[in-house]
Design a binder for these strands. Structure first.
Lengths: 347, 347
DNA sequence: CTGAAAGCGCTTACAG
DNA sequence: CTGAAAGCGCTTACAG
């Protein structure tokens, strides 16, 4: 009764509050709260009066205030590498669906493969007090997250593991996938096989290289340094790598690529090449079956990756306190033609 | 001094607050606030003491509480159709970049082309008091948003216009794009051209159909009912549409598709067909240049769509109060072969 | 330079 | 069935 109507500074809006509704309906604040939250213990008549006031004023509960009092924000953060990368679309959507089924909203953003930007974004999300975080890490040192995790922010890494901290992670079987893709090429008669991957500071790039090397070693095949190229996925860089591998005195007869962006560029480069070169790509790509030859790939299940990570997160939020663990999601080789080409006649 | 340490209920965490920091540093709350927000008027010595307390406790400002007091949440909502659809990836990312440059976080979600889900999501975002909304609408009646917009939630529609309310919108030139794509096919000698589009309740689907019809009319060509098929983008549905158009006594010799998902299915269907059929697709698709023939498309600029919408939104938030308007982003025809095929010999 | 009080819009824990 | 008071963790507007 003391401080009724001191209007606030120009904010974006000037929305009615529960206090306004209470005043208009001639009831107490708590009664409005009961109606808004469908709590029992309100006579139909009172409820009707409150509801009328709500409708007349266009009241909508401010969940930001609610959240402050309740302690949970019912929101989770998802930090991925690039919202525009089609590989992450299904992962993003899968996380959203799980969040939705738990009544939580999804805040997300791109790290742009920049560790500083990742940290900035993650900490901004912590400051907003998201209940949990799902992170596709760009950096390799996540000790900055320790105080947050200790303070109760559930965190699950996906696609790549956390660096220097012990945390839940859901990963694709990069090593196994690359190994089986390479073995597939070997089985089709190739002995000089190139590998073009992403930057070596990216975990999956290193794992896939390891898988490639393991398969080559298993087959008793040497790996020439010039057959391996790790770097950015910029088309120019990848294109040069292809050209140099094919121009060498002992040119490769097959190539294994480290991810979808590399695959696309390699397909373009090979289309311009005179001699057929076999190709197995990591990650499935749209229309791969319609190219000539169809592109043989090691497909990851991005949706399963996202769903598994989100389910793990909500289990943590529901109190699961077991030790952090890693889940590995299998990959699947899909033969479509490019990986089954025989080596072209040795010069 | 009265209510020092009454520990709260089990929430997710139990983080230190400014009060804790103040107590530990032996200063007032406001002094902590000054240090945390880098406001002037704190002696170096005091600042150091506060900073030490912050570090020791692992304090991080609760932006949720800050936001409640300040009135702006520094977050915007983006509601699109499907986070997994590659068409929306670049749009999503473009919105994120603009938001980021304004210090705002992005909350987003999928409507799954369901008007009820759209409304539910939008209102949840309003309850969180996002400063603004960018919406790719699924529904056709947005009057439910009127109280929110009146209350100050800036809103920009993108890709499709709002229904039954006057609001900013940023759209692709669907009509013009479809018209020029159709005219392109006519110029290459086609007279029986099919159109396979999305569901007629989707604005862009209708506009593209209109563009198709306008071009046909302009060329003095009749349009047989059996040449037009609107419906879901489910592969089965689209496949059937293709088959039926090609089986007719007067089969079409060219097809214009209404979006990327339809295009992909049509490409697959045509690959299995004996006779070449010309194709122009709405939306560019990855690897379109590598197919044989390359797929001629009407490319939309999804990133420009997103960037333009987000910039409009922040201009509104900065006070721009001019009447709602529509911005139309041009499309671009990219000839790659499939749209330049001549009509195959008349039966 | 520093801090106590009031308030942002809700919910919690009580008391009637 | 109903509501006044206190509090969530900050910032605002003052006063010293």
């Amino acid at each position: 009764m003391a401080d009724t109507a001191r209007h606030s500074e120009p904010r974006y809006g000037n929305r009615p509050t529960m206090k306004d509704v209470a005043a208009r309906a001639g009831v107490g604040l708590k009664t409005v709260s009961r109606v808004v939250n469908a709590e029992p213990g309100v006579t139909p008549d009172t409820e009707r009066r409150v509801q009328e006031a709500i409708d007349a004023l266009g009241f909508r509960r401010n969940d930001s205030a609610r959240v402050l009092r309740k302690g949970r924000t019912a929101s989770i953060g998802l930090v991925l590498e690039d919202l525009a990368d089609p590989f992450y679309g299904p992962l993003n959507r899968a996380v959203e669906e799980v969040a939705r089924s738990h009544g939580a909203l999804l805040i997300n953003g791109s790290s742009a493969e920049d560790p500083d930007r990742e940290q900035e974004l993650v900490l901004a999300l912590c400051a907003r007090r998201v209940d949990g975080l799902i992170i596709i890490p760009a950096g390799h040192d996540h000790r900055y997250l320790e105080p947050e995790i200790k303070a109760g922010v559930a965190t699950v890494f996906v696609d790549r593991p956390a660096g220097k901290i012990d945390a839940d992670a859901v990963l694709s079987d990069s090593f196994g996938g690359a190994r089986s893709g390479t073995a597939h090429l070997v089985a089709h008669g190739h002995r000089r096989i190139g590998f073009i991957g992403d930057q070596p500071r990216i975990h999956t790039a290193v794992e896939r290289l390891r898988g490639y090397r393991a398969a080559m070693a298993h087959a008793g095949l040497p790996v020439d340094d010039s057959w391996v190229s790790l770097g950015t996925t910029a088309p120019d860089r990848v294109h040069e790598a292809v050209v140099s591998m094919l121009k060498a005195p002992e040119p490769v007869t097959a190539i294994l690529t480290g991810n979808n962006r590399v695959t696309v560029t390699v397909v373009r480069a090979l289309a311009a090449h005179d001699r057929p070169v076999a190709l197995v790509g990591f990650d499935d790509i749209e229309l791969a079956d319609l190219l000539d030859p169809g592109v043989t790939v090691i497909a990851q299940d991005a949706a399963t990756l996202g769903r598994t990570a989100a389910e793990r997160l909500f289990r943590r939020l529901d109190g699961a306190a077991d030790a952090p663990n890693q889940v590995v999601v299998p990959t699947r080789l899909i033969a479509r033609g490019s990986g089954e080409l025989p080596p072209s006649a040795d010069r």
